[in-house]
Nucleic acid binder design. Structure first.
Lengths: 345, 345
DNA sequence: TTGTACGCGTTATCAT
DNA sequence: ATGATAACGCGTACAA
């Protein structure tokens, strides 16, 4: 039960603690023989340095953190992997931290910076409705990845972000459906409180309809009501079922996330509709899963790999002082697969 | 840039540091007025306690950790949610830690226990090929969730686990396919090095075949070669494609994970096979996604919710000293959906 | 090359 | 109810 510390190791080795410390941290000025001896003792005694003590003392941590809201989002898994690789290349360590939907990611970031002496932070997901005041407290550089909706209340010079233009891309997708001849396009939209990507995607839909002289029908805008797991297939299924039962006429469904679209396709199938012959379905995100369902899902692909790579590289450029904050926009790619078709007259 | 500490707060308030500490930690013996005053100052100064220092000093942390190997596994998302809820009910805090596939989860656990003064640990995923020696160093209770293959080299009295009997359930699924008239059943199996659940599921398949006098054909056992993301749809797709191209005759595919099965179904569809009319496909796990694909996937459902609940409750029972280590086995449930059918003569 | 001693920010003990 | 002070375990000047 007795916790073994660096002092114990030093005693056993008959050396001072600083020598042990040097051995552990690969300091240059230590006798290789001494070092080997110490490492052996550490090995057999099972000594493990206490990270709290290390963090407390260490000024220079060479580490960053990734705060991710929505752990289930498959979209993030890939990004994390890439970010991790790049981080290792720079010989930094990375702390991955899952943030609950009810938690405030900036508060957590604030704590983490103090605790771990971070050099930088990446925020993935989240709603980005933070006060500039709080953000200012965060004295390390931070980058928002795939957030989409940088609000006006924060000075653009105070943060970086990497994202696609959700408004524009969403408009693109809607226009694609319109060009296929669809007029009654239902949208699986974000919950009312969404100030982030969801809102922009809905806005893009709206603008596209207006541009083409198509009125937006209330009954075709189906908002997600179960906020618990917003972009779940289950939500897509349930909302689509409600849509079908409502009796509203529609020939296409545009879901603001692929996962919703997959739920929608299932609901349509269960109700006896064929996709895309009877109803076209389009998604957004370009997740892998969309390629495995039948029919394959037409989607708006976000270039995740490139975005992740740019996100982490940008962070390091800012950390090193080479650059100031930036706002990088990636182009999305409309990938036409099998779930959408021209409307039969 | 100057980090504000508890001392600064004390000075500003004109009180001692211990009083500030008391205010922060809700100690009983403090004047409510003083406390309010201090909290106000903290609020406006933006002071944030340093967790490293806290952990270093604090003996009693009331926290547990969940180490999860394979963050992408949708199977775990649900478990974590439930574990988190139960943890909060007990007024414990939970540290969620993602473990890379190349990392040793026990080493990480060892570090974490020292750093955060944990009271207990839950291991999710991982291959459980740890030496008892290391595990012994871990002086807090730990529970393995859904691991499946408790190896013989570790005394059963030294750990707990919650799982389904993978061998038995896998055998059940294979026999189900046999009873449908299938004899040439291909299996999408784990990579050769898998000592965990994968191995057991393969063993169940083998035993079922033997029991029914069906020889195991080498050509029908397709092992996962890309270990990077073992149970991915992509792997299922690729392996199935190889199987089809190999020319081996088969009428059913049993995938040891639903994700693999979904990849398999897509590969079959692309090759012109109908599921289940031409080929039956069965999975294992019972993930949500299986209900959204077309056709719905026949699977062996693990009762995730119950297992998660039992896992965390068991851990707390052990922490409180009420119970010793246990080995809890849940029954799986074969859910017949649309992807399997009786073999046409 | 190696050892001693101090300080990192906090909580707990002991006075007051 | 409050304040001074000793740990917690480690890294690092500085001295040797």
């Amino acid at each position: 039960m007795s916790e073994i510390t660096i002092k114990d190791v030093a005693k056993r080795c008959g050396v001072g603690v600083s020598t042990v410390s040097r051995a552990i941290n690969n300091h240059p000025d230590i006798n290789p023989a001494t070092k080997q001896m110490i490492m052996d003792v550490i090995q057999e005694s099972g000594y493990i340095p206490n990270n709290s003590a290390r963090n407390l003392k260490r000024a220079d941590a060479k580490s960053i953190a990734v705060l991710i809201k929505g752990i289930a989002n498959p979209f993030f898994s890939k990004m994390i992997k890439i970010i991790e690789e790049e981080t290792q290349k720079k010989h930094y360590s990375m702390e991955l931290r899952h943030v609950e939907s009810y938690e405030d990611e900036v508060d957590i970031a604030l704590e983490l910076v103090k605790e771990k002496r971070l050099r930088g932070i990446i925020f993935l997901g989240g709603y980005f409705s933070h006060s500039e005041e709080k953000l200012e407290k965060l004295e390390v550089p931070f980058v928002f990845g795939t957030v989409g909706a940088p609000p006006e209340n924060i000075s653009r010079a105070s943060y970086s972000d990497v994202a696609v233009d959700d408004l524009k891309e969403s408009k693109k997708m809607t226009e694609y459906l319109i060009q296929l001849g669809h007029k009654d396009i239902a949208i699986l939209a974000p919950e009312p409180g969404d100030l982030s990507i969801g809102k922009l995607r809905l806005e893009g839909y709206s603008q596209a309809l207006t541009k083409h002289g198509i009125g937006m029908k209330e009954g075709l805008v189906r908002k997600i009501d179960d906020v618990a797991d917003t972009y779940s297939m289950e939500n897509g299924y349930r909302i689509t079922k409600q849509l079908i039962e409502s009796g509203e006429h529609f020939t296409a469904i545009y879901a603001i996330a692929d996962s919703l679209a997959i739920g929608a396709m299932r609901a349509l199938k269960d109700a006896g509709f064929r996709v895309p012959e009877d109803i076209s379905v389009a998604g957004y995100d370009g997740i892998e899963l969309g390629d495995y369902v039948v029919p394959r899902l037409t989607t708006l692909r976000q270039p995740v790999e490139e975005m992740a790579k740019e996100t982490i590289k940008l962070l390091f450029r800012i950390i090193s002082g080479k650059e100031r904050h930036q706002h990088i926009v990636y182009a999305g790619e409309l990938i036409e697969k099998e779930s959408t078709a021209r409307l039969e007259k």
